[in-house]
């Protein structure tokens, strides 16, 4: 009994510290950059706004929206990754590895090129559809054959689908040379140069998906003990799995619509979190969300400084951090299930 309460306290402590860490990085993200500002200036900007002060304008227009977008996208990707790793029982599962990012991008670029879709809401819905199509395709392809879903098959299918979509996307961009430079930055994943207006249409969906994801913690714990056990305990496993799938599509598709393709957050974060919290999904999901947000904020801050005065696409940063991690897991060996 005592041990159990201890463990509970430990988890609460982890949760509180990840909230605190997140707050620190959020603040750092707001005050650091090409025009460094102080904490007190930031405070003034929000509570005693002075429209003649450039620092105030930078803070309220670009910095804050950038930090908020990084938070939302990081949290969404991390949760999507945690859910996917649970659903497929595959330590290498993540939105980008499943080809979901590439699928959403392809659909968005195709819609912009051929059907002149230009509204953000349009991009968003098309992003959702693309994410859904690519995710379903890879899930289905990864589970053909009598041995069912195997990590290696999913990774391979994801690689093929990604190659297909990326190549088509590149083809469309080559046709439209003027747009390469601007779209390339977005393709590589970036949270800069976007204002809140880009986030707002997507936000309700991501919030609803996040709430559902957090509620899915308990059913996921049961599901993880095996399909048969879950069925015997009276769980409608198909419904739960379907719900997870839909939540993943909204989280990942929404992120791509806002920030382009940002890889490896969904892969890395759940692994780190699971190491700290243990296998309980009621804790893994919220802490993953916080850690994902923190990690993306860190990546974004680094991206501003590494090649001053220009900026690195954040997708490049996350890939540079994330690939060694992927290699480590791949090297350690993926078991067929688990």
């Amino acid at each position: 009994m005592n041990g159990r309460t201890n463990r509970r306290y430990r988890k609460i402590a982890i949760l509180v510290s990840s909230v605190l860490l997140f707050c620190v990085f959020f603040l750092l993200s707001v005050i650091l950059g090409k025009t460094p500002t102080s904490l007190s200036t930031a405070f003034d900007a929000f509570f005693r706004f002075d429209s003649s002060n450039t620092e105030h304008i930078i803070l309220t227009t670009s910095r804050i929206s950038r930090a908020v977008i990084a938070t939302v996208v990081g949290a969404s990707l991390a949760m999507a990754g945690a859910l996917m790793q649970a659903l497929t029982r595959n330590p290498l599962a993540a939105p980008d590895i499943f080809g979901i990012n590439a699928g959403a991008l392809f659909f968005i670029v195709a819609a912009a090129t051929f059907f002149s879709v230009e509204s953000l809401t349009g991009y968003m819905w098309i992003g959702f559809i693309g994410a859904g199509v690519a995710g379903t395709l890879v899930y289905f392809l990864g589970s053909i054959g009598e041995d069912g879903l195997s990590p290696v098959k999913i990774v391979l299918a994801g690689a093929a689908i990604t190659a297909l979509f990326v190549s088509f996307t590149q083809g469309m961009l080559v046709i439209d040379e003027q747009r390469i430079q601007s779209i390339l930055f977005w393709l590589a994943g970036s949270v800069s140069g976007r204002d809140m207006d880009m986030l707002l249409p997507v936000l309700p969906f991501i919030i609803v998906a996040t709430i559902i994801a957090l509620l899915l913690g308990k059913p996921l714990n049961i599901l993880m003990s095996g399909d048969d056990v879950a069925k015997n305990l009276g769980q409608r496993t198909i419904t739960v799995k379907l719900l997870i799938g839909i939540v993943v599509v909204f989280l990942a598709g929404g992120s791509v619509a806002v920030a382009g393709s940002i890889g490896f957050i969904g892969l890395v974060v759940p692994h780190i979190v699971k190491k700290v919290t243990g296998p309980d999904y009621t804790w893994i999901l919220p802490i993953s969300a916080l850690t994902g947000a923190s990690l993306l904020l860190i990546a974004d801050i680094t991206a501003r400084f590494i090649i001053m005065p220009r900026e690195m696409p954040i997708g490049v940063m996350t890939a540079l951090i994330g690939t060694p991690f992927f290699l480590f897991i791949a090297r350690k060996g993926v078991k067929k299930h688990g």
């Binding site: 054959g145 009598e146 195997s150 098959k153 689908i161 190659a163 297909l164 190549s167 083809g171």
Partner: peptide
């Protein structure tokens, strides 16, 4: 003048998936 790579991927990726399907025993594990 579209890059030829777009078309090789268009044919190649479905073929890869077909291989994945046909070699499902080889690739599991």
């Amino acid at each position: 003048d579209i890059p030829a790579g777009v078309f090789t991927a268009g044919i190649g990726a479905p073929f890869f998936i077909y291989l994945l399907y046909r070699n499902r025993q080889v690739t599991s594990g």
